[in-house]
C-alpha cells in the first residue's frame, strides 16, 4: 500500500514506484474519507455561482458542451479530466475570461447570486472583481514590488481603502506568505521562488475580496512544500470564498475539494461526465469512464 498520507502527508510526490490501480482507488478513497469535512457544514457568505447549459466554441470548434454545475457558498469544487477536455475553458467562462480569445463564442448562462454575468449591459470589470482568478503560471507584475503586487487589484479597480498595511498583511498571511516576505515587501516579485510567486498571486487575488476564486492548475509547477501551503490556503479560504480548482493531480483533488467534477472528451466537445462529492468520485464512481480515469487506466 502506498502511503499517500502519513505524518508528513505531502511527501507523496516522492513516491516513485507505480502502484497498481486497485491500490490507488482504495487509497484515494481512504484519503477522501479521512479528510476533515469542514466546509460542507459551514454556510458562509451568501454568494453562489451556477453554470447552466454552458457551451463553448473556438471558431467553429465546439470544445465544451452543456455543462450544468452549481457552486454553493463555502464549497471547494475540483475539476479533473485529461488535457484538452475543456475544463480550463469552462473555468474561464465563469469569470468572462473566455471572451479574451477573439474567435471565442459561448452559449448558456452563468449565474452569480442569481444574475447572469453574460446579461447585456453587465459591467464585466465588476464581475471579475467578484470572481477572482489564479493562473497556472505565477504571474506577479514585474514592475511592482511585493507589497504593490498585493494591493495592485485595488489600484486597478480604483478602490479606495484605508489601512492598506493591514490588508497587505492579512492577505499575505492568508496566502501563507507573510512570514517569508514581511522583511522585504519592497523588493520585486521576481526575486521570489515559483511557489512564493504563486502564493503572492493568491494574496493579490484575495486583496479585492472576491466571492469566488477560480484556480487553473495553481500548483502544476510547484514543489510539494509550496503545494502543501497553497492547499492549506485553499482549505482556509473555503470558509469565506467559493473555490473552483482545475487540477491534474488527483490526490490534490481528493485532499482539497468537497465536490469533484470529471470532464472528458470523446472526440467531440468536452462534457461533464460525473459530478459528485469527492469521496464518491474516488471510492465509488458511477460512470465507468470516471473510474477508469481516477484509477489511472487512461488520461
Amino acid at each position: 500500500m502506498i502511503r499517500l498520507f502519513n505524518e508528513n502527508r505531502y511527501e507523496r510526490d516522492a513516491v516513485s514506484t507505480p502502484p497498481n490501480e486497485g491500490e490507488i482507488v482504495s487509497s484515494l478513497a481512504s484519503v477522501a474519507n479521512r479528510l476533515p469535512r469542514i466546509s460542507n457544514e459551514v454556510q458562509a457568505s451568501g454568494a453562489d455561482l451556477e453554470a447552466r447549459g454552458v457551451h463553448a466554441w473556438f471558431g467553429s470548434r465546439h470544445v465544451l458542451a452543456d455543462v450544468n454545475l452549481s457552486f454553493p457558498a463555502g464549497r471547494v469544487t475540483a475539476l479533473i479530466g485529461p488535457s484538452g477536455c475543456g475544463k480550463s475553458t469552462f473555468l474561464r467562462t465563469l469569470n468572462r475570461m473566455h471572451e479574451f480569445v477573439p474567435s471565442a463564442a459561448m452559449a448558456g448562462e452563468v449565474l452569480l447570486d442569481g444574475v447572469d454575468i453574460y446579461k447585456q449591459g453587465t459591467d464585466v470589470t465588476k464581475i471579475r472583481l467578484k470572481i477572482g482568478m489564479v493562473f497556472q503560471k505565477p504571474n506577479p507584475f514585474p514592475s511592482m514590488t511585493i507589497g504593490e503586487n498585493v494591493l495592485s487589484g485595488l489600484k486597478l479597480a480604483q478602490i479606495k481603502r484605508s489601512n492598506k498595511e493591514d490588508l497587505m498583511e492579512e492577505c499575505l498571511t492568508r496566502a501563507g506568505l507573510w512570514n517569508e516576505v514581511k522583511d522585504r515587501l519592497n523588493s520585486h516579485g521576481g526575486s521570489l521562488s515559483g511557489g512564493q510567486q504563486q502564493r503572492l498571486c493568491i494574496a493579490r487575488a484575495l486583496a479585492v475580496a472576491p466571492e469566488v476564486l477560480l484556480m487553473d492548475e495553481p500548483c502544476s509547477s510547484l514543489d510539494p512544500g509550496s503545494t502543501l501551503r497553497i492547499e492549506e490556503t485553499i482549505r482556509q479560504l473555503s470558509q469565506s470564498v467559493i473555490v473552483v480548482i482545475v487540477t491534474h493531480n488527483m490526490q490534490q483533488a481528493a485532499r482539497v475539494s468537497d465536490y469533484t467534477g470529471f470532464f472528458l472528451t470523446e472526440g467531440g466537445p468536452g462534457r461533464l461526465i460525473e459530478y459528485a462529492p469527492t469521496r464518491e468520485i474516488f471510492s465509488r464512481p458511477k460512470d465507468e469512464r470516471t473510474e477508469a480515469y481516477v484509477t489511472g487506466r487512461f488520461g
Partner: peptide
C-alpha cells in the same frame, strides 16, 4: 442528445 445551441458572443453589445 441535446440540441446544440447556436454559438453566441454575449460580450458584444447588441
Amino acid at each position: 442528445q441535446i440540441p446544440v445551441p447556436t454559438p453566441k458572443k454575449p460580450w458584444k453589445p447588441a
